[in-house]
Amino acid sequence: MKAKDTLLYLDGVSVSFDGFRAINNLSLVLQSGEMRAIIGPNGAGKTTMMDIITGKTKPDSGDVYFNGTVDLTGHDEADIAMLGIGRKFQKPTVFESHTVEDNLVLALSGPRSALSALFHRQSRDETDRIHEILYTIRLFEKRHWLAASLSHGQKQWLEIGMLLAQDPKLLLVDEPVAGMTDAETAETAKLLRDIARTRSVIVVEHDMHFVRELGVKVTCLHEGSVLAEGSLDHVSNDPRVIEVYLGR
């Protein structure tokens, strides 16, 4: 397979931590506009894969291409974010001493230079976008709260809101429904499906109901490489997947 015409292209990627192979000859391809769910047992390397894509971890070997031509291994986190890859962390990471609204202000796409930030004045347009996102993530009433005082689930939503504000081409979403009620989980699935209409998304999640609601192609990782790939039914009937993951 060629990197050309793909949005994200990982080929033969490996990375070791102190001799331990967290990612082992991993290959994964995402088409433009596609949403993909990633499942797999704890320690399979799902988060590490996101670390590699976003420039936090440099792979020992292998190719990582974005948009067909951009070699991500040669860029740092800030560059990659500006290329259009946004990320939600497994442990929700918001700016706790800022208000909900200011978290979105910081995430909002736009110039990132220090000088422009010093003299930045929020435009009508930006305010409207922020308010729109606040409604989408159901935090409009709480926009003046400090992010620290949000519940776990609300922080997850705020972080998804920050992703929306960033307006990336590709969203990497790590365990978005951990700590959510069933109703919230269903809402989140709906929100992600909405988002996926205009963008590409990779979602890591352990919650099988949630993965089913997404209704997209699934990749199962195990010990740093792809164990199975296809529809959820196909993957969840794979005997090896049942053995290492579902059957436990």
Partner: peptide, 23 residues
């Protein structure tokens, strides 16, 4: 200023700020 908000963000979660594209 917005720059000040970035600084406080750096204080609280430096690497998160990088993933938002800030140098």
């Amino acid at each position: 200023s917005k720059l000040g908000k970035v600084l406080v963000g750096v204080r609280d979660a430096e690497s998160r700020m990088r993933f938002l594209g800030y140098r």
